[in-house]
Each structure stands twice: as structure tokens, then as C-alpha cells.
Design a protein around this nucleic acid. Structure first.
Length: 93
RNA sequence: AGAGUAGGACAAAUGGCCGCCGCCUUGGCUUCAAGGGGGAGGAAAGUCCGGGCUCCGCAGGACAAGGUGCUGGGUAACACCCAGUCCCGGCGACGGGAAGGAAAGUGCAACAGAAAGGAAACCGCCAGGCACUCAGUCACAUAUUAAACACUCAACGAGUCAAUUAAUACUUGACAGCGUCAGGUAUCCGGAUUUUAUGCAUGAGUGUUGGUAUGUAACUGAGUGCCUGGUAAGGGUGAAAGGGUGAGGUAAGAGCUCACCAGUCCCGCCGGUGACGGCGGGGGCUUGGCAAACCCCACCUGGAGCAAAACCAAAUAGGGGAACGACUGAGGGUGGUCCGCCCGAGUUCCCGGGUAGGUUGCUUGAUCUCGACGGUAACGUCGAGGCUAGAUGAAUGGUCAUUGUCCAGGAGGCGGGUGACCCCUUCGGGAAACAGGACCCGGCUUAUGGCCUUCUCUGACA
RNA sequence: UGGGGUGUCGUCAAGUGGUAAGACACGGGCCUUUGGAGCCCGCAUUCGGAGGUUCGAAUCCUCCCACCCCAG
């Protein structure tokens, strides 16, 4: 089991996979809203990892699960929340 | 200006940067790179109907089950659309309607009410009977009263005659008619009388018509109670009470009869393809509501769904077949090879089904745009042109700038209007909806942003 | 994609054309020195929402909404 990190709108599960590449999984359930809202949340999460690909560590499996109110976020708030995990905590595994 | 009504088009735009998914070309050669080009909707949604398509089933018929239900048209089809009919709602523009059959049958209608459907008498109305009460009429009887009229008798009054007498007095007798009472303010007033004045002056009886009281019998009327019958006009109950109004009629009433009206059915004529409408005549004289209760009638429907279906096809297990082999040892291990040693009952090949996985289905179609013609319209026909998403954990986004739209606010305008108010300029803010294809179409329904147009009603002003 | 079910007071729920039962909870009162228990009383303007049929709808019909379940 990987390590869980909770923020206001996301649950992030991280585990070392030993492959030397980073794999991303995204989970957005029906609780988050209709199809438009769910797709938007997925895009925001992917956009975050695309823009910050060089800053995130390699060799991990990352699963991001959206909570209920995640559809009200914009890109900057998403960056603040996820950045707080990946930039400040320094991966205490 | 406000409130509505019907309809239409749209679904912010442009650019920069960073990204996403297919396609084509070139290079690389399943992965990548470069270039080119494309990339969600009016509802893509809900999955409520109808089809195409695919597989399965199917001689034909009937039943069941489900659905639809005014007429005509449109369509591949529909529960959809168009044009109408009728009914309902709205002041209106306009909107809505599962709108066949209730004299085929079964059933339902709480409470209230007498009665909820081939009827029924609670109150009421009418007739008859019985009992009681009251009143009246007539008759009789009794008692009483004495109001009216008539008559009789008597008396009295003013007279006449006769007798008597002096006398015309008094007395007695006889005699005809009249008065003895109309009326009013009623112990009083007023007035009459064969002659003036004054004064006086009524009693009894009978009869008739009565009145009052009682009784008897009959009759009539009214009331009360009971019984029998007639009656649906009226009251009352209810959502609904077996047509409405008026007249006649009747014991009281009633379509019992008549007139007019409403409705239903039938017939005829006219208009319409038709639903239906109009006119005329006739009949029963009124035969209620609910079928989104069962049901009847007419029509429609085979089942499943692109995770359908087709093709290619690992690994493992099992099936069929062939060859070799089971102590005369197939095959395997060891080893460079042979011998040897060890293990050893199956081994090898082929075939078919088929899972994972992949490919197809997969976007050229009841298609879109424009034009012409037909049709009131829905729609159809013809011609020209176009190709417009095909993902499969599922792609169209992020950010910046400018412009545009909307909202509330501030400031300004020698802008408009009688006015409510509207318009323009500017400032700095804020907002931008509902929502994402998943085989494809036609509808329906629901969600949702502002814009434009048509028409209606109301208010103010002219 | 296809199919099925549920929605009634705060909770569990009955009711299937004619007044929305009941229990628990809650509120008030009685009782008790007080609390509990017990007794009495109260508690649904809209039965998920909107239309329609009917004299009358929680119930019948249509369309929506929310939730749950099943099959591939």
C-alpha cells in the first residue's frame, strides 16, 4: 500500500514502483458532478503534472482521487493544493 | 411602460504561448519526428416512443400479453408532425384534450339523503276511512232574552154620540181613527196627538224573524292523530335526483296534453374527401355519470440488442484424429559426442470449438447546403454543390491580451418623452448558462443564457 | 445497453379511489421530594415534484427528480 496524503479536495496515493518512470492514475467518481465537471477535474490534474513534470520525482506510481467539491477549483488552486504535497513535503516515504 | 402570446436565429470573437485525440504525406519503421488538415449539442442529456442495422426464431391460423384510439394528410415508422372538427380554459393574442363504445354484459358512487338508476313517498300536496276537538248550518226540545216587525186585548190622552144630570161638569156605556215616541251629547234635551194652550200618558199576551245557553241527531268546514291510496309540481341532501319555461288540465299532480327551447335517434336536402356543420320533417317523449374500473370493438406489435454480430487468434485446460511407444523402453536429464548412469508412461504432429487480446462493424447517411417546382402546411420531387468527430479509463483544455455582450453602482449629457422611464459617453468592478458524442437516424420530454420579431391585454398622455 | 424496485411525521412504517392507522422519538401536563417508569393530551396546510382522469387521487394515467439493486 502506498502512502496517502489528504488535501481539501484530493486524496493522493504514492508508491515507489522500481521502474524508473512515473505513472499517473486519476479517479473521479460520480459524486464530483456530471460528465463535464468530471472531465474538467481530470484535465486540471493532468495539466498540473504536465506543467510540473520536471519538478516531480521519477519512479513512482501516483493515484489522485478527487473529492466531492473538486469541480469548483481552477488551475491555480489545484496547483496550490497538489504543489503543497509534491514540493514542500519532499516525499517522506 | 407593464403583463403576456406565438415564433426564429444564436450558443462570444480574434490572436499569442503551452497541451490533447484521430486522419493524410514524408522520414524512421508496431512506440517517434516534421508538415498539412480535422475535432461535440440544441438539447449530444433523460432513455419515454418509433425505425434502420445485426444475430436468433418463424408453413399457416388462433389465443394470451402489451400498446394505440376524432377526421384527413405527411412519413421508413411512431404515442410524432401538419391542416381541420368538436369540447374545455383564457378579457384577449392563444393554449389544452388517451376525443371509439355506457339502449353487449359485469361492476363502482364514501358521507349525506326517502331514494344513487327501468327507482323511490321523509316532509309536503290531494282523496278516502276511523277517532277526537272546534266552529257553523238546519231541525227539534228546554231555558232565557226582548232587539225588530205584525197583530190582539186592556189602559191612558185629547174627541164624538147616548144615558144620567141644571149642566158641555162628574159618572157610566158605546164608537171610528190617531198618539203613547223618530232622534240625540240619554236621571237630561227635543219633538207628536181627529182643535189652541198647559199638563198627563204603556202594560200584558200571541205570532214571525231572531239572539244567547244547553242537549240530541244529521250535515258542512277546519284542526290533530292513525290507516289506506294517489302524486315527482315544491322543500331538503348530495358532485350528480330520470329535460327547461309557460299554459291547459287535475282531487292534487305529472310530457298527461299543447307551444317554444335543449338533447338524443331516424329520414331527407345542402356544404365538406371526412370528422362534422346547416336547414326541414318525424319518432320515442328524455333512454344519467365513470371504460387513465373490468370489458367490447377496430388497428398495431416475433425476441434480443453494437458488450448485437463477423473475422484473426496467444497461454492453460480439456475434446477428436494420426504416428511411435509401454521393461524387446517412446521420450527426457547428465555430457563436446558415444557408451554408461538416472528418471520414465506417455510423447510428437494435425484438426475443430473457443477465452484474453486484436481487427472489422464505425460513419456516405430516410445526410447537409443552396435553388426550382408541387402542396395551405407537415412534406415531397428534381438539379447543383459539399463530406462535416470516430475516442475505447474514453480526446476539444489551460493561460495571457484585445474587442464585444450583460448586471448593479458612481459621474456627465443645451439627448428623447407630458410622464413612469429610456438613450448616449465615461470610470473602476462583477458575471457569462444548461451541459460532452460512444452504432446511426426521426420524434417526445426535461435543463438552460441572453437576443430579435409577431400579435394581445392593461395603464398614462395626445 | 437492458431490466427491476423504493420514496408517506425527526425514525421505522400501515393504508391501493371516500376523514392519512400505529410504534419509537419530541413537546406539554398529571404522578413523584427529584429522576426514571406509568397515565393523559398534542404532533402530516403539499404522501418526492408537476400535470391530467374523476364529484373526489397517497392510491389510476403521463412526464420529470432522487436513491437502491440485478444482468451482460
Amino acid at each position: 500500500m502506498g502512502k496517502r496524503h489528504h488535501t481539501r479536495h484530493f486524496v493522493v496515493i504514492i508508491k515507489q514502483n522500481g521502474l524508473g518512470i512515473t505513472r499517473l492514475g486519476v479517479t473521479v467518481s460520480k459524486k464530483a458532478g456530471n460528465a463535464v465537471k468530471r472531465n474538467r477535474v481530470k484535465r486540471l490534474i493532468r495539466e498540473f503534472f504536465r506543467l510540473n513534470n520536471s519538478k516531480t520525482p521519477q519512479g513512482y506510481d501516483i493515484v489522485v482521487t478527487a473529492k466531492k467539491d473538486a469541480s469548483y477549483l481552477d488551475l491555480w488552486k489545484t496547483k496550490d493544493e497538489l504543489g503543497a504535497i509534491f514540493f514542500k513535503k519532499k516525499f517522506s516515504l
